[in-house]
Design a protein around this nucleic acid. Structure first.
Length: 421
DNA sequence: TCTGGGGTCCTAGGACCC
DNA sequence: TCTGGGGTCCTAGGACCC
């Protein structure tokens, strides 16, 4: 097998740069919802010492002093550019797996018989740049985990020019020898600490460790990772995205709130979004959960965090059914004199098709007309001609998040298109 | 004063059954 | 009253990913 991992460089920051050539070579950061903390940084921003996940208020001055620019996250723009990048990759390789918003695996098995793999990497890189304006790097290897490792090498060592091919055993060894074990795909913060404690510091140390010890002490997942690093493929390409098993919509509020009306509005708003996602998946759900919590950073506040679920007796994806349940749960979860900062709605236990049968909390049976109604609402809301809302979502929404530095939706909104004159 | 959001999988333990 | 093995299902918690 041969896999390639194509990874966009500082994806969100690069998206902001696609339509702003004036920002070339400037430090750019992108902030999380509510302009809370840094979720993406350009190379230049890293160079002036800004770190991932740092709160905005701590880096603001430093960034401005260095003539950097900050953006609120603009998910519409990122999703659209991601789609363009993925479509380009689908042109270049017969089989691709969209792994995340900024990464894709390509199946390159057989390619090496007529083309040098490194050359493939470079041509892939330049085509994506030409067609979409997005800088990418390419890692190639006999397993997905090794392709990931190759991509790490391409990022870490500029002289590779953004392309690393790890088909060769000796090259694998050379990289894994100097690659910290925590950088391996599948080894996170906790595992890294545990492995370090027993003397495993590099990827090569991990490969050479006792297999039985890995299996018994760390489980089957790490064992699989070890085999992948040894060049034995254990994880295949998944071309079709598998159907979701749960849908979560949650947000931190723009300010702390303590009134039931406000939190109920927010939860209703999230419920509506969750149902849209559910219908897009063509699924029906039985399990509905709501959670809410206080701000753990406010030590002076009384803390509270709770989740409550309700199981419907029949699957539904009708927004009105879900709203009925989430509103009921919200009332039960809510507590007076508590400052809430975040709430969320979770849908799970999915079924392909709903059946028409009554539930204790749903007074009306759903039929074809109801399905058409939901479809119509979804269509109206997706065309941009206007929005149909449910009353419980509220109108003012002054609890909603802050996004003060939002860039235009260059590619998805008529009013934000760039005009060339 | 300010600290993200959305997912998946595995494992251990409890309840329950024969 | 105490004792045994084997199995399933569910849930909570922990780990990982981006």
């Amino acid at each position: 097998m041969t896999y390639a991992l194509v990874d966009c460089n500082s994806f969100y920051a690069s998206c902001e740069r696609v339509f702003r050539p004036d920002l070339k070579n400037k430090p750019i950061i992108v902030l999380s919802n509510n302009d809370g903390c840094v979720v993406a940084l350009s190379k230049e921003a890293k160079e002036i010492g800004i770190k991932m996940c740092e709160p905005w208020f701590k880096v603001k001055n430093h960034l401005q002093k260095n003539k950097g620019v900050a953006f609120s996250s603009n998910y519409e723009l990122y999703a659209d550019i991601s789609m363009r990048v993925m479509q380009t990759l689908e042109h270049l390789a017969p089989k691709t797996e969209i792994y995340s918003i900024d990464e894709a695996f390509l199946d390159l098995t057989g390619v090496s018989s007529y083309m040098d793999l490194e050359d493939f990497g470079y041509s892939c890189k330049s085509t994506v740049m030409k067609w979409t304006g997005m800088p990418v790097r390419v890692g190639i290897g006999p397993t997905k985990t090794l392709a990931k490792a190759a991509s790490y090498g391409a990022k870490k060592y500029p002289k590779t020019n953004g392309v690393v091919d790890l088909s060769d055993k000796n090259r694998q060894k050379k990289l894994l020898e100097i690659m910290p074990v925590g950088e391996i795909w599948g080894v996170g913060y906790r595992l890294n600490e545990k492995l370090n404690r027993i003397g495993i510091r590099t990827a090569l140390d991990l490969i050479n460790a006792d297999t039985r010890l890995i299996r018994t002490r760390f489980g089957i997942l790490l064992q699989r990772t070890v085999m992948e690093l040894q060049g034995i493929p254990c994880i295949g390409l998944e071309e079709k995205p598998n159907t979701k098993k749960q849908i979560v919509v949650s947000r931190t509020f723009g300010r702390k709130i303590n009134k039931l009306v406000d939190i109920s509005e927010a939860v209703s708003d999230y419920s509506v979004r969750a149902c849209e996602k559910l219908r897009k998946e063509n699924q029906f759900c039985k399990m509905v959960s709501v959670f809410m919590r206080t701000n753990p950073f406010r030590k002076q506040d009384q803390q509270y965090s709770n989740i409550l679920s309700y199981k419907l007796s029949i699957p539904t994806n009708d927004t009105r059914d879900i709203l009925y349940v989430t509103r009921m749960i919200t009332e039960r979860l809510f507590k007076k004199n508590i400052n809430f900062i975040k709430a969320g709605v979770m849908l799970s236990d999915f079924y392909d098709k709903g059946v028409s049968q009554s539930d204790m909390f749903i007074r009306k049976n759903r039929n074809e007309k109801d399905i058409t109604l939901m479809k119509t609402i979804d269509r109206i809301n997706s065309t941009g001609i206007g929005k149909v809302n449910f009353a419980s979502q509220g109108i003012k929404k002054d609890w909603s998040m802050k996004r003060h530095m939002h860039s235009p939706r260059y590619t998805t909104n008529w009013e934000d298109f760039i005009v060339v004159s």
